[in-house]
């Protein structure tokens, strides 16, 4: 049976300016199950954002298909909510109106009071209450703006939520707080999330599964790493978990070395699925080979 979201043989080529073509990625194939939180990791230029735009329906692939819930993705839809890196709030609307804008588009049959109540509820879930919701985005900090953007996306209950490096523009401390808030709001829903990030620790904290992309050109989704750390997760506690550094090292090794080595390897159509990787040290906790994780050197 097909997964909830099925990306099949996705290929993107651009003209390279000299009459030829550059292939960003080829035959990318992967699936996302309903309710799953999947993060895609890879270097700049491997086409993560292009995949995101294709999933959002904002651009079309050169070839291949995206099938969600049995229907092919064609064009943008309210079923696929997007949180953009630069927040994409409408600066002439207040915080509340930025959210009601989305809710009213999703539920045109609702009364104004219903729309406002629903929007206020979701703003409160990301910690925005009181006077703050009547301010314009320009009067909010970067972190608060991204909270509004997250509230707007969650309030619409999309079938698939796409997060395009949502914390990329935030400082490390704010990022941590909002990651916690994202986990909190996500755990209360059965929301399927697909997220791009550059940050390995963020990926481990949030994801059920991490897809690793090789470098472009001819990038592909090479591995699918299961995060074998039980939820609920907490940023201070997961680093104590025996699997944390094992997974982290695997990711660092991949991004640091193997993503380069595997770059440019072409794969035939139909065999682009990522290799599943499962690292679980808890089964062999008494294995003497495993050094104390905290002492492991991490070289990128």
């Amino acid at each position: 049976m097909k997964p909830f979201l099925s990306v099949e043989n996705l290929t993107q080529r651009y003209p390279d300016g000299t009459g030829g073509q550059t292939t960003v990625f080829e035959n990318a194939t992967f699936g996302v199950e309903k309710g799953e939180f999947v993060v895609i990791l890879g270097h700049s230029g491997c086409g993560k954002s292009t995949i995101m735009n294709i999933l959002a329906g904002l651009s079309d692939p050169t070839s291949g298909a995206v099938i969600m819930d049995g229907t092919e993705v064609k064009g943008p839809s309210l079923d696929r909510g997007v949180v953009f890196q630069n927040y994409s709030l409408l600066p002439w609307l207040s915080t509340l109106k930025n959210v009601t804008f989305g809710v009213a588009a999703r539920h045109p049959e609702w009364t104004k009071a219903q729309v406002i109540e629903h929007s206020t509820k979701y703003l409160a879930m990301v910690g925005l209450e009181g006077d703050v919701i009547h301010r314009k985005p320009s009067q909010l900090s970067g972190g608060m703006r991204q909270r509004v953007s997250i509230a707007r996306a969650f309030a619409n209950h999309p079938k698939l939520l796409l997060l395009d490096e949502p914390f990329g523009a935030l400082d490390a401390l704010t990022r941590g707080t909002i990651q916690d808030e994202l986990l909190k709001i996500w755990s209360g829903t059965e929301q399927t999330v697909f997220m791009i990030t550059h940050d390995i620790d963020e990926a481990i904290l949030l994801a059920d599964r991490i897809l690793l992309m090789t470098n472009g050109p001819y990038a592909r989704v090479a591995e699918s790493v299961e995060i074998t750390i039980p939820r609920p997760r907490n940023r201070t506690e997961i680093i104590e978990h025996p699997n944390y550094y094992a997974i982290r090292n695997h990711l660092v090794q991949f991004l640091g070395k193997r993503s380069k080595e595997m770059a440019g390897q072409k794969v035939p159509a139909g065999s682009g699925s990522p290799t599943p990787v499962r690292i679980d040290k808890t089964d062999t906790a008494d294995d003497p080979e495993i050094a104390p994780p905290a002492l492991r050197a991490v070289n990128e």
Binding site: G57, S77, V82, G102
Partner: peptide
């Protein structure tokens, strides 16, 4: 383009996009 993308991902029709996004943005 981000603002236009917001309108697109919210499935606004061209007329509503013109009045609720492009007009206030260009005003």
């Amino acid at each position: 383009e981000d603002w236009v993308n917001v309108a697109r991902t919210h499935e606004l029709n061209p007329l509503r996009t013109a009045f609720s996004v492009i007009l206030p943005a260009a005003a």
